[in-house]
Write a protein that binds this DNA or RNA. Sequence first.
RNA 1: GUGGUUGUAGCUCAGUUGGUUAGAGCGCUGGUUUGUGGUACCAGAUGUCGUGGGUUCGAGUCCCAUCUUCCACCCCA
Length: 469
Amino acid sequence: MAQKPSIPKGTRDFNAVEVAKRSYIMNIIKEQFELYGFQPIETPSFENSDTLMGKYGDEGDRLIFKILNSGDYFEKFKGVVSDLSQTVSGDLSSFYNLETSFVTKHISEKALRYDLTVPFARYVVQHQNEIEFPFKRYQIQPVWRADRPQKGRFREFYQCDADVVGSKSLFQEVEFVQLYDAVFTALDLKGVTIKINNRKILSGIAEVIGAQDKLIDFTVALDKLDKIGEEKVKEEMRSKGISEDGISKLQPLFSLQGEFGMQVESLKSILNTSEVGIKGIEELEFIDASISKLGLKTAKLQLDVTLARGLNYYTGAIFEVAAPEGVKMGSIGGGGRYDDLTSIFGKPDTSGVGISFGLDRIYLVLEELNLFPETIADATKVLFINFGDKEAMACLQAVTKLRQHGVKAELYPDSAKMKKQMTHANRRNIPYVVLVGEEELNSGTYTLKNMKSGEQSKLKFEELLSSLQ
RNA sequence: GUGGUUGUAGCUCAGUUGGUUAGAGCGCUGGUUUGUGGUACCAGAUGUCGUGGGUUCGAGUCCCAUCUUCCACCCCA
């Protein structure tokens, strides 16, 4: 027992105050989700590896927590190897030539949930006959990533997702922008930026510069523009084999600035030969026009052509939410349109679109900006001081009655020194204490003390109740 | 996964070129006050210097490993 206990890297314990603050955020998100017509579902913490692997790209696969098979997985694995190579069972030398992925596949068949979107796609396919489409669901559950922790980056964290499947309507995208705005407004987090882009535009650009086959490399490089600058981006594109001619066609992109409309115009000039690119522009224009008509409360919608989220399943709109200016935090939300996600699980032609809120990062942002309401922890309202068994019994009767009337009341369990009991009330921020000693016991009264003002008065039970309600 | 950074009392941090018994503030405990907390005064205790090895007569200080924290990549909420 000499060793200090600890928790794994990138995980956290939450105390009562933290839990209260977290559920404050969660409840607001939930409320808005339901207001927009989404219904909750839950999926298991872990899935079959096949369900998750290969859905997030190579980098994603690396970050998936694999669960080691239970039982004697090693003995079974040796069996697989010896069947395969006909080598003598127990000859370890053959192990060294094996691919990691091969080994992993045989010793691990389950993995922890990496996000909520892929399990949701699995859910939709598996329950397609019970689901009424378009299907709007929300899901608030933890996900796990074997990432290296940093500020706002954990190995276990919560995502809050809302998705619609079974509708290609762009009104869904419009509503999701409104939903983002509604949640952040309800949280009193003003000035968030909802960045929007469209995968079709990125495909169109790649097409125009003759790099269709390098779409991912191209977008990953472009995504870094505001971070590493124009020259470094070009350098990276060159190193990925994008032609000099193509890069020069991108030139207008690097100086893209200003209002939505102006950006769209310059995009049109680049993309006029690309059918898919034009389609992307039309989609963007529709969303922007609709939002302009409907209005946003506190967030702003901004076109960002360099926005290229790594997930390879987005096909249309791409969203990412940035914290208000001055807060150093990665994105606090993201999402987009995916036309093809469920086809991986055998259900083609089902378009989906969804967004996600990063609970833990929103928490950090609210904390930094001091935006949590003060009354968030709804704790005990009155503590009865314990003077001894006889008095305590009388107190407990009063406590019981108060509780029946919905007053959060408790009795200090031990007849400790008064100072200790008062200090206890103080530290727990309990606003009232009640003193019942011999005198009160005889007169059937209660001395109620306001811990903030120091005032106190002797009351009958009915008076006590009404002043605590 | 790559490179760097951090760890000393409950908390925030000092601690010299390696040298006797490791310090401060806040907090904590007790008392001034046996029916009154938060304010005041007095007194007291803080500790495996992250962990494990090594160098040295001697290590909080130097070296190695490991864990943790934060940062930059990568990627992402």
